[in-house]
Amino acid sequence: MFGKSRARTMCAAVMAAGLAFTSACAPSTQQTQATDAKQVSVLPAGVSLSGTPDTPAAKPLAQHASLKVGIPSKLELEAPALLAQTYGEFAKENLDVTFVTDTVPNLLTLLGQNKIDLVYAGAQALVFNALRHGVPIRWVSGVASSSPDSGVYMSTKYGTSASDFNPALLKGKNIGVNPGGLAAPSEYGLYDLITKGDLSPSDVRMTPFSDIAAMAQALNNGSLDGATLGAPFTASLKPGVAFQAQAGYPASMQIAGYFATTELLGAHRDAGVAFFRALERTVNTYLSGDYHQNTEVMTKMAQQLGTTVETLRVAASVPFDFNVPAQSVDSLQKMYQSVPGTLQVGNPVKPGELIDLSLVIDAAQGK
């Protein structure tokens, strides 16, 4: 890790609306000069972040380096990094990677305190609040396109398919949501459906569940009118009880990925590029197509995630995608603005201020 050379800190205070960063965290002159170095906020036409097996080729660092990577929990979405460790892809880059597990707010605080180098997280409101207060945080990679079976599921009392469901019917309905509701990026599908029905969030009754299995059961027994669900919980829905009314999020946006600060994008970008070369090579070699049918890969993944191959195969293979479309920034902010107290007062963050794809592009191009 490169904490000794860093000059900035991230100040954090836990408030009722979530983690807020104070203006005392403004970057130093050195940080300002490093900000946006080689920044690429939109994937250039003709550039692909995917490739064939064993590509991009390893390009070992001239000097051994180490990175600490924060993850909130071990999920299949983090399989590229976890399996890169298992298959020795980091070692091929002359890079050591250590994983640190904690909550997303704590991990982002550690990122600013120079204690970790990258964080895997959803693009929560606190990311936008941090940037607005001068913390040089960047969204450097996506993770996946929306899973085909994730999204908003409605009781068949209100329709049978997305094509015949009228979103205006959400008014007054009781919808199960993940903790945080529309303050969490995972609820974008519900927000999108609400806006399609010309409704406001206050028109819909949202019941948060920390136990997602219980939320699926509540939809099964009729105590909920709908719920935001994804794999493997969608597999427990009884046939004929519910239908998918809205996907989790459209292909034109992303809701999660890896976050870093301009330190990794600047003086130590070689280590950042090496990290993403290993991740992209892992996806291209082991996690492309319907990799759930590859018993060897799934066995290693199950070991990493502390589960079974059978449990993982209940869901479809994840469509990994490292891109972060610019629309993601505007769309998520609009959702957060609909929840009072979620975004701190200030001008909206522009896509070019937050997204920086230069590490994943350089990695894909073998640089």
Rank of each mutant, 00 (worst) to 15 (best):
A364D: 02
T22Y: 04
P80G: 09
L182A: 02
V127P: 03
P179E: 03
K171M: 04
E280W: 00
G266P: 12
E78C: 13
E93V: 02
A235Q: 15
M15A: 09
G151M: 10
L170K: 06
I255D: 13
A91N: 08
D96F: 04
S23V: 03
V140R: 12
Q63E: 11
N323Y: 02
D321S: 15
L305D: 07
F275K: 06
A363L: 05
G70K: 10
Q113K: 15
V152K: 10
P44M: 06
G230W: 12
F99G: 14
L126N: 08
P60S: 00
L83A: 03
D149A: 13
L43D: 03
E296G: 06
A184Y: 10
K115F: 05
G181M: 05
N221R: 11
S358K: 02
V135I: 14
Q217G: 06
H133S: 09
K300N: 14
L126S: 08
G230V: 06
D192M: 03
K238Y: 03
S146P: 08
L118D: 05
A79L: 12
D362P: 00
A130Y: 02
T307C: 07
A227P: 08
I355F: 06
E353S: 11
M301R: 04
T234K: 13
Q124F: 04
G176N: 12
A213W: 07
D164E: 09
M154N: 11
V339Q: 09
A123K: 04
V309Y: 07
A7P: 01
V97P: 03
V119C: 01
R6Q: 15
Q337F: 00
M206Y: 05
N178M: 13
F243H: 12
Q303L: 10
Q254G: 04
L170D: 13
Y286H: 14
V297F: 04
Y158A: 09
E93R: 08
I71W: 01
A7H: 11
G181Q: 06
D321I: 04
E89K: 10
N221V: 10
S41I: 00
V40W: 00
S210N: 14
D36W: 07
E89Q: 11
I194L: 05
D290M: 02
G180L: 02
S338R: 01
S66Q: 15
A183N: 09
G240Y: 13
T55K: 07
E310L: 02
M298T: 06
G70W: 11
A316R: 10
M335R: 07
T109R: 14
D192A: 11
A363F: 02
K238A: 15
P72W: 00
I194Q: 09
S41F: 04
M301D: 02
I71R: 06
D356H: 07
G240T: 10
P53D: 05
S23D: 10
K238P: 00
T98Q: 15
A58V: 05
V360T: 05
R205N: 15
G172S: 14
P348E: 02
N166F: 02
V143P: 03
L75T: 15
A162Q: 14
Q33H: 13
P239K: 12
L108E: 09
G257S: 08
I116T: 11
G240F: 07
V309L: 11
P185C: 04
A79T: 04
I71E: 04
E76N: 07
Q31T: 14
G189T: 04
L224Y: 10
S252A: 12
N294Q: 08
K59N: 10
T29F: 12
S145N: 14
A121W: 08
